[in-house]
Amino acid sequence: MSEVATGYNFAYLDEQSKRMIRRALLKAVAIPGFQVPFGGREMPLPHGWGTGGMQVTASVIGQQDTLKVIDQGADDTTNAVSIRRFFARTAGVATTEETAAADLIQTRHRIPETPLRNGQILIYQVPTPEPLRFIEPRDSETIKMHALREYGAMQVKLYEDVARFGHIATSYDYPVMVNRRYMMSPSPIPKFDNPKMDRMPALQLFGAGFEKRIYAVPPYTQVTSLDFDDHPFEVQSWEESCAICAAQDSFLDEVITDDAGSRMFVCSDTDYCRQRVAQQEANP
C-alpha cells in the first residue's frame, strides 16, 4: 500500500467543501430521490471516473471507517484500485474487500450480492443523474418535469419496448420511483440489482461529479422500478451458474476463454464469489 500523502487535508477535500457537500447530502436524504445541486469540486481524477462518488466518500468518511471500493462488482478492476489507493493515501483509512467488513462502499455499476445492513453506507458513482436526460436534454425543463411529476414521457419509452418486443427492453440504468414521488436513475447498475435498492437497510448516496448533483435513498425507503400493471418489472436470469463458486443467484459476467469463442460465466461480485468458495472449502 502507498504511504499517506502529505500536504493535503484528510481525505483530500478541505473541510469547508466537505461541509457544503454534507449539507447537500442532508437535503438529499430529506427528499429521497430528489437531485440536489451542489458546488462540485474538481478532483484529481477525470469527470466520469467517479469524482462524484469520491466527493461524497471524502465528505462522510471518518478516520475509524473501513472502505471498500468496487467497479463492475469487483475490487480488483483498475479504477477500483485507483480510487481505493487515493483514499488510502489521502485519508490513511483501512480498506477491505469484504462487503460485511466495510462501513462505506463506493461502487460503480453494481450493488454487492451480500445484503447490506443498517449502518453501512453505499455510495454510487453516477455519470448521468437525470433519468429523463435522453427524453429531454434541458435541465430547465427536466426540473419542471420532476417538480410536477410529469413522467408520462418516460412511460412512453417503456410502452414502445412492450409494443416492439413484448416486454420492457431496458437492461441497466433502469429508472425507479423513490418513495412514490421522484423518478430516479439508479446509476448504470444492471436491473438485476434494482430490487436490492428497495427498503435497503443501508443508506444509499449518489454523487454525480461533473453534473454537480447529489441524491439519496434513506434506509428502508421504498424503491420501485417502472413498469406497467400488465407487464410487471422483471430481472435477468441465467441458465448457467458461476464456474467458480456455482452460485445461481448472482449476476454473472461472461468470460471468453479461447479464440473459438468458448464462454464461461463467473460472478461479477468477486468478494461474494470468494466467500462462497471459502465456505465450500470449510464445509466440503
Binding site: G48, W49, D71, Q72, G73, T77, T78, N79, R108, H109, R110, A169, S171, Y172, D173, P188, I189, P190, K191, F192, Q236, W238, F251, L252, D253, E254, S268
Partner: peptide
C-alpha cells in the same frame, strides 16, 4: 473504463 456489467446486460437482452 470497464463497462462489463452494462455490456453483459445488453448482451443478454
Amino acid at each position: 473504463l470497464p463497462h462489463y456489467v452494462d455490456f453483459q446486460s445488453e448482451l443478454e437482452m
